[in-house]
């Protein structure tokens, strides 16, 4: 199967100190992959490297046929200013950016699509609610509605189900499965291994470097989890002391 993303000896980090080293693997087109690992393993860092917020210190990410606008990214919630006076409708409509850009207008057809996206995450009736007045779960639904409109070939989700209720998680997982059925490539940073085992066929395990990548049943073993924890503990302290030799 063709690769949607291939990591070639990719090293990412902050302030020139590597947080994630020498990642070498491929993510197939249409795969549904969970990115797991202990705290500080570099899961979010990997997604930031893909979206281009972080430039690689070494190596690179090959995108194959994907272009920048084919990639949608849902960061961790804390990055959005919830006090900003935007309505649900405004925020969801931003998902049309790829089509309308900075200056295009939102036509009647687009409006219908925005309302459909809001309806498919179950928020009909809250279109004009300010985003500051939403619960955590509702906010996550809004962000998923925006992702729906982005219509991206590669969807990157960073802890999409952290701190939301079970009902919302079930609804949003259903959307993820719909995207998967539509042939989109999805990578999601997750920490709940039960969710991963139940819903994600592929798993990529990190601990500042690649631990394992493949079918979830083969990756999510007790042995790998133990190894990942050990590798991360060995890496506590100055990041540059963490190297290949640890494994």
């Amino acid at each position: 199967m063709a690769a949607a993303l291939s990591f070639r000896n990719l090293t990412l980090g902050y302030d020139r100190l590597p947080a994630l080293q020498q990642i070498e693997t491929e993510v197939p087109v249409g795969s549904l992959t969970a990115v797991v690992g202990p705290n500080g393993a570099g899961k979010s860092t990997l997604l930031k490297g893909v979206i281009g917020v972080l430039a690689p210190l070494e190596g690179k990410v090959n995108f194959g046929a994907l272009k920048r606008e084919d990639i949608a990214y849902l960061p961790q919630q804390s990055d959005i200013d919830r006090s900003f006076p935007l309505s649900v409708l405004d925020l969801v409509a931003m998902g049309l950016w790829r089509e309308i850009g900075a200056f295009g207008s939102i036509g009647p057809k687009d409006r219908v699509r925005v309302h459909q996206a809001i309806a498919s995450v179950g928020l009909t009736g809250l279109e004009h609610r300010p985003i500051g007045a939403l619960s955590g779960g509702q906010m996550q639904r809004v962000l998923f509605a925006r992702l729906l409109l982005q219509d991206a070939q590669l969807v990157l989700l960073d802890e999409p189900f952290a701190a939301i209720d079970a009902r919302t998680m079930a609804d949003l997982l259903q959307l993820v499965h719909i995207w998967h059925d539509e042939g989109r490539t999805i990578m999601a940073v997750l920490h709940d291994y039960d969710v991963v085992a139940e819903h994600f066929p592929q798993t990529l395990m990190l601990a500042r470097e690649l631990v394992a990548h493949g079918p979830t049943s083969k990756v999510l073993t007790a042995e790998n989890q133990f190894r990942a924890r050990q590798m991360c503990e060995a890496c506590d302290g100055p990041p540059h002391s963490c190297g290949k030799g640890v494994a």
Binding site: G52, Y73, A102
Partner: peptide, 23 residues
């Protein structure tokens, strides 16, 4: 007027703006 949309996004959700555009 010209920059309104990117400016709003730059304030509310800069990471999203960076992920969809170079503006």
């Amino acid at each position: 007027a010209i920059l309104f949309r990117p400016l709003v996004l730059e304030c509310a959700d800069p990471q999203f703006l960076r992920s969809v555009s170079g503006l």
